[in-house]
Design a protein around this nucleic acid. Structure first.
Lengths: 150, 150
DNA sequence: GAAATCCGTGTATAAATATGCAATAATAGG
DNA sequence: CCTATTATTGCATATTTATACACGGATTTC
């Protein structure tokens, strides 16, 4: 049963360097004396639940879910940036206008940020209403949102 | 700029049902009036940082990193199960024997479980030493480990 | 100890995904 | 309003990944 020793090595390898493809991985393994085909690696990767993520370079690389967690909200922030048209307020409601169809996703983005003093949000097609728990917190929340965009 | 509206829909779709391939996604989008090719979806998926995960059925499906977080340690537990040969103790050190080459990965598994009273662990090739903070906690920790295996 | 079963793997290939290039659309600058 | 620049997308295809099938070796069963 050499499978787990191999899988262990695979984890090591993808931690050490950016492995782009399963072929690459197969080659790297061959160097250290483990000789398997891409097919086997495909199966290992499935078992290990490894995922292909985009490295800083923009290239793909294999990684673990754990290590990718940092970049979670990253994604939302990026979408956020690109779809917000304006931010305004009416009493304790922050009104965010987005490009058409993007309100839902911006809503989720905001929710996932877990900003204190936000009671909740509701999103239509191009507008998100964010309910602030107090009038005092509105400005801060707006600033908070702006800071994400910039 | 219909891109973000589309990406928003993509997120909705993969939440609603198990989408296996990018082609499937393209078809589902077509149904709701969004007509794009697989190539575009590939790019969207890269931007959204969606990942292919194994659904309960064993099939692949697209998902977000967030939703896959539950299954994180899942993986480690599975490896754990399959590579542990024996668990024993010497004073405050729990000694875990694994199949050759699997000690490292088991060590990481244990670390990631964040069991209280474990000071740390060190792994060779087929043996892991787990340092318990007190003699009293040893039994409990061993039971803990056994329960994972079963 | 032969037969049946299971597991891990390679081979070959189908299936799925990523991408270079070109066209088009959106945006900005004057 | 026109031009330059940048973004978005499709098409075609290269690249990458998953898998059906077959096989060998272990393990179990009777």
């Amino acid at each position: 049963m050499k499978k787990y020793a191999r899988q262990s090595k695979i984890l090591e390898l993808i931690n050490e360097k950016e492995v782009e493809t399963q072929e690459d991985l197969a080659e790297a393994l061959k160097v250290i004396g483990i000789d398997v085909t891409q097919a086997t690696i495909s199966r290992d990767i499935k078992e290990l639940r490894l995922i292909k993520v985009t490295a800083k370079s923009g290239k793909y690389k294999y990684g673990t879910i754990e290590e990718s967690q940092n970049s979670i909200s990253d994604r939302l922030v990026r979408i956020f940036k690109n779809s917000i048209v304006s931010i305004d307020a009416a009493m304790n409601i922050v009104i965010i206008r987005t490009i058409p169809g993007a309100a839902q996703i911006c809503g989720s983005a905001i929710d996932s940020l877990q900003i204190t003093d936000i009671g909740g949000s509701i999103a239509g097609d191009d507008t998100v209403f964010v309910a602030c728990k107090s009038l005092e917190s509105v400005d801060e929340i707006i600033n908070n949102l702006y800071s994400i965009i910039n």
